[in-house]
Amino acid sequence: MLNAKPTWKSTLKTLLYLAPLLLITAVFTIWPLLNAFLMSVYTKYNYFTDHVGAIGWNNFAYLWHDPLFHLACRNTLLLALVATPLTVALSLLIAYGLNRIHHLARFFRTIYFLPFVTSTIAVGLVWNWIFRLDGGLLNRILGWFGYSAIDWLNDPHYALAALMVVCVWQGLGFNILLFLASLNHIDQRYTAAARLDGANAWQRFTNVTWPLLLPMTILIIVNTALTNFKVFDQVYALFHGSAGPGNADLTLLYYLYQKFYVENQYAVAAASGVIFFLLIGGVTLLTYGYFRHRRRQMGGRL
């Protein structure tokens, strides 16, 4: 029946169907999340006996005064703010190009998609070799152009840039795929109409293709920003289990990892996790709000 009204009975029945998944989500996502929130306010806490001595905001105060945490915040924000637009712009450019070439498009698509399906550890090792001071591919290429070699991974000035390069490169594949799908979805008639309306290639892109891509672009921006906020394994692989020279590549997640697994400051780790959560939650809400605003502007489309 298409017009069946929900009743208590039908709702209960639905819940029963959903129960297995709900149970798994509750045990493995919601319960740990709640615990993390709670743990962030435990001040005299024994993780192994689960004994809570006192409750308060001390962990947050600690973070407030910890220069390492400040550094982690700065690095994470810098990484997200630089790598995200770069990734999105590059993937759009490449997707647009791939959409227009007819030969070898499938081949290039595979090439660009490879980073996405390759393990980050392997990727990190390969990039580690590319960035090496002597014999590294990047420095060799720079050498051809007459630039002196840069110690990408050991110079604190360049280590974050190196990490950004890896993040951008790794983010391309999936985003290109999404952009390509979205480009293929745009009706050819709009571009044909724009052509007849006298629009040149650039005008067609800015006035027709780009606005029609906007919903997908917003999705990709949010997704890429979140990915770049959550960088951890790339750092781990690139610098062999350290946060780079002089903590130059210390990200929020790396900070959390260190506090929890290395320094055993569980409550501080939980508190930094809460701040991390608020940060990415804020970013998501902000973009979502913008998306809603644009949708209303465009008369409910998108």
Partner: peptide, 22 residues
Amino acid sequence: LASRQRHIGMVFQDYALYPHLT
């Protein structure tokens, strides 16, 4: 000659109005 230089107006079968413009 390219379409955009021909000075032509065209109405497409299902109109192809730009959905994002008023």
